[in-house]
Write a protein that binds this DNA or RNA. Structure first.
Lengths: 171, 171
DNA sequence: CATTTATTTCAAAAAAAAATGAAATAGGCA
DNA sequence: TGCCTATTTCATTTTTTTTTGAAATAAATG
């Protein structure tokens, strides 16, 4: 079963591109699902990431074997994260999508849109906690106020670090 | 309906502690679910976070109104992240759990256990992508190899940044 | 060592999340 | 304007995840 080392097997250009596409889809499906995004969003981005030309929605759906409903919703999500953009194609009135590949910007959008709002509402919740603390703190209550303070520090640190994170991404 | 500013309303010590508990559960349910953890895990941690004494599993379950099955599984998860520990209580053979509250350590465990393994397998996937590239690169293939290189940089940056992140957490 | 209590496991049920597809809408083009 | 195609919306279905609860296991106690 040994093959000559310099012979590449099964490598038709078209097949190779298709392999790449499949690996890419796999890659981004997993990455996106770590970030809490549905499978279809990862599939679409993965497909576009290795596509030389911008693709219209119906082609995206049929290539991935997903419904146009899923494609529409997935593209909406990706658009809102600015992870895809549309290109004008002369003589075709469908929108053509291509992947935005500057990950630094992508993550900064993600953090701003998906994380920071939660951090903001966390602050409110911490303030409400403080209202449940008796005003003159007995030694007993020390425990509670220390824990509340910890949460406050945590959210503050998160609020600083996360936005800075994208900036640190030196790709 | 105006009340004297210095009068606190509805603040029985026991009630206050219960309020705190509820806010805490709410807080951690959301935080954990951002990190992809099931509701029950957040509930348990939230309960323990503001509990002065370590609690046995059956009390955790009954206080939260969840099944002992959920409690057992949730505690297993929290234990594996070192987010809870057990305390010995004399004359009681049940395990008593309390929350680990050093968030720096918690996040570093989370990153190590839940993120880094994915990054490792991402590297394999990228290597496989390179195998789909024809060996002598035509101008055409330039596109693909540039995109692959981008992914490599992304995973490399992630692998450095994420573990460092917990260290930056100055709480 | 038998009994009692605590904990885990896991098949089944319930709940939550995502995908589908058909109807509604939008929007260009003749 | 009226037609045609592209896209969105959303009720329904499907899939996935989480919880439940009962049986199995483990572990301490008398």
């Amino acid at each position: 079963m040994a093959l000559p080392a310099n012979l590449k097997v099964g490598t038709t250009p078209a097949l190779d591109a298709r392999n790449l596409e499949l690996e890419s889809i796999d890659f981004f499906v997993r990455l996106m699902s770590m970030l809490g995004m549905p499978r279809s969003v990862g599939e679409i981005y993965g497909l576009l990431y290795f596509s030389k030309d911008a693709l219209p929605m119906d082609q995206i759906a049929s290539r991935l074997g997903i419904s146009i409903g899923s494609a529409s919703q997935g593209l909406r999500t990706l658009r809102s994260l600015k992870a895809v953009r549309t290109a004008y194609v002369a003589g075709d009135r469908r929108d053509h999508y291509f992947a935005e590949t500057e990950f630094r910007r992508l993550f900064s959008n993600f953090i701003k849109d998906e994380i920071m709002p939660h951090l903001d509402s966390a602050k409110d919740r911490i303030s409400r906690m403080e209202k449940s603390l008796p005003s003159q703190s007995t030694e007993e209550d020390e425990f509670y106020s220390v824990r509340i303070e910890k949460l406050r520090r945590l959210t503050k640190a998160g609020g600083r670090l996360l936005p800075a994170l994208a900036g640190l991404l030196k790709l």
